[in-house]
Every structure is written in structure tokens, then in C-alpha cells.
Computed example of a mutant assay.
Amino acid sequence: MVTRRTQGQPQPPSRLGEHLCRTYADDQERAQQVSALVRDGLARGQRVLYYADTQPTERVADQLRAEVAEAGAALERGQLSVESTADGFLRRLPFDPDLMIARLRDSCQEAVSQGWAGLRVIGEMDWSTRQVPGADRLLEYELRLDAEVLEDLPVTGICLYSHHAVTRAPAALAAAAHLDGADPADSAVTRYAAGGTQRARAGLAALPLRPGSGVRLVGSADLDSRTALAAVLTAATRMPASVVDVDLRDVDYVDAAGTAVLADTAAVLAGQGRRLVLHHAPPSLGRVAEMFPDECRDLEMTA
């Protein structure tokens, strides 16, 4: 049967890192944004690592030398590095969030040991729109960074997506999974909705849950968004946690199709000895669960 519990309001912990997303319309806008982001990172005393996707790294380095006064010296002393996504995100295929998260942690610890204030990683993410093995795990990677890297390490992760990329899965959901502020209104969800992202088309977006290991959904979980919901829950179930929390406070409606996806996910986790816990479930979800008690027996909801 459906389990219901009550709980207090958790308070988000202070974090050492940041996870940001920026989009660009063309190569010129991308170059301008990268120059500004690199300049800011150098001024903050961070070790700056830029992953270029399609451009030769030598050309990017030359552009930075021309646009950022400090770039030449920073490249010489090792504060700034330009690498390709093939040597970063895609060093080993299929793309594996576990490996990339471990690499970020190691790189940050190395930067701090060398005396830098932290690590700034700027990465072009349009590789996710190509037929890259493991690209379907990009959303998982974006959602896991908060809890597994940013809470205890001074890493500033900045993901660059082209406007072209954020109209296509899996990049659309991944681009929207950046909580730049404390409220969904300040997040990538709102900013990218006008650009035709998955949230705008499917009515659903996912954000990292703070605190905890899980996701915060925004929008509606219904027939139109069930594909997006399934992708989000697949990413969430890959998180290394015995309890996967899903915060539904910003979900205005869950229909039978959305409930079925949630129930299926809960059943899969139950078979693994794990739990799916739904927080702040809307009344519509409770009504559907009461109509189908057998199918929803593994659902666990908190008030």
C-alpha cells in the first residue's frame, strides 16, 4: 500500500562550489562568454580548465591570449589549460558520470594543493547532441554534481550549451538541470523555457535536490511529459544512494501516466532493496494512488 509520512523542512547546507549553465547563439557569443568566464576565474585565483568541443585547442588558446590580458601568462604558469572534450568528458567511452565526477574531485584537490583558490571547469556540452555512447547519462551527471562535488569542494562548474543543443534530448533536460539560485524562478528552467527546451515542450524539468540525493521536479507529470519524467527518474535511480528523494512541491499536477512512471520506478528500487520517497506530493498523485493501490504499493509519500 501507499506509505505516507510527515517530516520537517530540511535546510539547504552551505556549499563550497557552484554549478552554472550558459547558452550561446553562435561562435562569436560563445567566444565572448568564454573570455569573460576565464577572466573572472583567473581574477579569483582559480585554476581554470576549459574543454573545447569542436574547435582545435590551439586556436582557442590563441583566442584567449588575444581577448584576455592575463591568459598568456596563466597558460605559461599552468593556471589556465585548454583541452578538448575528447580528453575530458569523452576520454573513456561510453561517457561515465562516475569517472568524470572522480576526475573533477581529483583535479580540484590537486589545484588546491598547488595553492589555487579552487577549480573552475568550463565545458562545451554540444557533444551530447551527437551519437556519443553514454550521452544519455548526461542528465545523471548534471544532477549528481551538487551532492557529490560541490557540497565539499571549491569547484565552479560552468556548462556551455548552444541554442541548437538545448532544443534536443538529452541536452535539453540536462541544460535545465542547473539551479543557479535558491528558487526555481532563478534557475535555468525559467531562463531556457523561452528558448524551446524540454521544459517548454514537455512541461517538466528536473533540478538537483538540496540537501539530499535526488531530484526536484518542476512542472507537470502527465501524458505529455512522461518521456521526460522517465528520463529523470532513470538518472535519479543511478545515484549512489539507498533512498532516492523526489521533491514534488513545484509539480502542479500528476496524472495516471505520471503516476505509473513513478510507481514503476519505486518497484524497481524496491527490488534492489532501495526506496523512492516522494516529498510534497500534489493531491492529484494521492488520488490516483488510491484508485490503484496494488500498482502503487511501493510508493512512499511524505506530507
Rank of each mutant, 00 (worst) to 15 (best):
R5H: 15
Q9C: 07
P10Q: 10
P12E: 06
P13C: 08
P13A: 13
P13T: 09
S14E: 13
L16A: 09
E18T: 09
L20M: 04
C21L: 04
R22G: 05
Y24G: 08
R30M: 05
A31M: 13
A31C: 12
Q33D: 08
A36F: 07
L37F: 05
L37P: 02
L42W: 12
A43W: 10
R44G: 02
R44P: 00
Q46A: 13
Y50C: 05
Y51A: 14
T54L: 15
Q63H: 12
Q63T: 06
A66W: 08
E67M: 15
E67C: 10
E67K: 14
V68H: 12
A73H: 13
A73C: 08
R77M: 05
R77W: 06
R77D: 15
G78L: 02
Q79P: 01
L80V: 02
V82F: 01
E83L: 12
S84I: 00
S84N: 06
L90T: 02
F95Q: 00
R103S: 12
R103Y: 10
C108D: 14
A111H: 02
I122L: 09
E124W: 02
D126I: 03
S128V: 04
A135C: 06
L138S: 00
R144G: 01
R144N: 03
L145Y: 00
E151Y: 04
E151G: 02
P154E: 10
V155M: 07
V155T: 12
T156K: 00
I158K: 00
Y161D: 00
S162E: 09
H163V: 08
A165H: 05
A169V: 11
A175T: 03
A177G: 04
A182Q: 06
D183S: 14
D183I: 06
D183N: 10
T197R: 04
A200I: 10
A202E: 15
A206G: 12
A206V: 07
L209H: 09
L209E: 11
G212V: 10
S213M: 03
R216V: 04
G219D: 11
G219I: 09
T227E: 14
A230H: 11
A235Y: 05
S242G: 11
V251F: 07
A257Q: 09
A257D: 09
A260N: 11
D264G: 08
V268N: 06
L269Y: 07
L269S: 08
G271L: 07
G273E: 08
R274N: 06
R274F: 11
A281Y: 05
L285T: 07
P293M: 08
D294R: 13
C296S: 13
R297V: 04
R297H: 14
T302W: 12
